[in-house]
Amino acid sequence: MYQIDDVTKTYQQGRRVVRALRGVSLTIGAGELVAVQGPTGGGKSTLLQMLGGLDRPTSGTVTLDGADLAGMTDAQLTAARAGTIGFVFQTFNLIPTLTALENVETALVPAKVARQTRTSRAQAALDAVGLGDRGDHLPGELSGGQQQRVAIARALVKNPKVLLADEPTGNLDEETRDEIVDLIEGLWKDQGLTIVLVTHDSVVARRAPRRLRIAKGTLKELPSP
């Protein structure tokens, strides 16, 4: 699924040059569930940006299904994100003025599907995360766990090839955290989705069959549990 070769990423932060990734190479097969651990500022988020086509590497290639994300234009990256990559964020990032159902629908807007299809697919996605009856609630009316379920439904409604999750349980209590991890695990098992899960929570990371650790811009494979 992913073929990452010698990827570096440097930022200019004021006068300081930050080398977030220093020659990272990685292969992720289709249907894998990979957890990425590491300290804050070690390069976890930067790696996720490269995988998700949110940013381009300074050097190296990021190949997703044979297409090099590093060489794409903004428009091509946008199209790739719209079609094949689903995101889940630590802070849920739901649109506060839109209902749960409408939030899920926003992911289908770039695909330009008919309104009715869009609504029914969004409803199905909400059903899949167990929130079928909360479609007309605003994010503010939902608990943190419920909001993250809506976000997961939004990520999955377009049937992406990969799901990239950035600290998906970072803002949740333990009980809810387990619910969400169960949900993600279930999706992985049922749908054969490729999932990259960035977390600094070892409990969460240990549930993944493959674990990576990134610190100071360098990637290290951790032994399987």
Partner: peptide, 10 residues
Amino acid sequence: GTLKALGWSR
């Protein structure tokens, strides 16, 4: 930014 990440065009 989220909408852009979701694939909304500029």
